[in-house]
């Protein structure tokens, strides 16, 4: 059996594979957050470990998933307004997998994942359209001029990095002043024509996200849909290393994808994101 046959065999059952990868992302995410609210998490983890080790093969209940869900809910209870948005997505995905372990209907699980993905993308579009700051390009303009986005470009253009640093310093100086004095600063453009580029990029982001959402809703298993979705994932990664969020989106894509080669691409994206999360190079 050659390597490609081994890989193909592994990629054949995408529900099992995607669930394993989700468990891996979940494990690393929960591990990073384990320090918060430890008074409640210690007994949950301890009882979960005991139950998992002693009764794993004696019970039909998905104990590991339930323990992780409980840990996620503890964070939600104490920090509903502080957890990342993909924390909520993680909760919904884990709930779907737990339900799947009882009903065992693949099509129901896939419908859950498809709808969750479409909701995330469509809501993101709605949030953008209803934000004047976004649609005018002002948000991107601000974030790029302070060096918050497209960080990979700055080492290539050191002058731009210097301007971004100067902008940040000006902003810090302004913060020291009483805001009632109505002082302002003028941000310098880190790249030429940034105002125009920001506006175009804002509209392009909205259109592309909407296209991906409609494609996933209409034809969730088509190759074209997944190519659009994967381009979107790389686009987000290049804009900012939101590896935690991207890994969940890619896992959702893997659940829905029928093509072996695209499944492999999803696996590469997910494992790459997990590596960056674990090494804290990316965001969890």
């Amino acid at each position: 059996m050659n390597y490609w046959s081994v890989i193909k065999l592994k990629l054949k059952d995408q529900i099992t594979l995607a669930s394993q990868l989700l468990l891996l992302v979940l494990g690393s995410y929960v591990f990073i957050l384990a320090e918060d609210h430890k008074l409640w998490k210690i007994p949950v983890i301890f009882l979960g470990l005991i139950t998992g080790f002693l009764f794993r093969n004696k019970t039909k209940h998905p104990i590991i998933w339930m323990v992780f869900l409980l840990l996620l809910i503890i964070d939600l209870f104490y920090a509903y307004f502080w957890v990342a948005n993909h924390h909520f997505m993680l909760v919904f995905m884990v709930l779907s997998v737990i339900l799947f372990s009882y009903h065992k209907q693949g099509d129901i699980l896939l419908k859950n994942i498809q709808l969750l993905l479409v909701i995330v993308l469509l809501v993101s579009v709605v949030q953008k359209i209803t934000s004047n700051q976004f649609m005018s390009g002002d948000f991107y303009y601000h974030a790029i001029n302070l060096g918050g986005l497209f960080k990979f470009l700055f080492p290539i253009f050191p002058e731009s990095l210097e301007i971004a640093k100067m902008n940040s310093e000006s902003l810090m100086s302004l913060k020291e002043l009483n805001p009632n004095l109505t002082e302002h600063i003028v941000l310098k453009d880190v790249f030429p024509n940034l105002s125009f580029v920001s506006r175009v990029f804002a509209w392009f982001t909205v259109l592309f996200e909407f296209l991906a959402a409609v494609a996933l809703l209409w034809k969730p298993k088509k190759i074209g849909t997944h190519i659009i979705f994967i381009i979107l994932l790389f686009g987000i990664l290049l804009t900012r290393l939101e590896t935690g969020f991207i890994s969940l989106l890619a896992i959702s894509g893997l659940y829905l994808c029928k093509t072996i080669k695209l499944r492999l691409l999803y696996v590469f994206i997910i494992l790459g994101c997990i590596t960056l999360i674990m090494t804290k190079f990316g965001y969890h």
Partner: peptide, 19 residues
């Protein structure tokens, strides 16, 4: 928009810039 489960990250300036 950045928080509260509504997937509105990167749609307005982060609240950390509020003063």
């Amino acid at each position: 928009r950045w928080k509260g489960g509504g997937f509105g990250m990167y749609t307005e300036i982060h609240y950390i810039y509020n003063q």
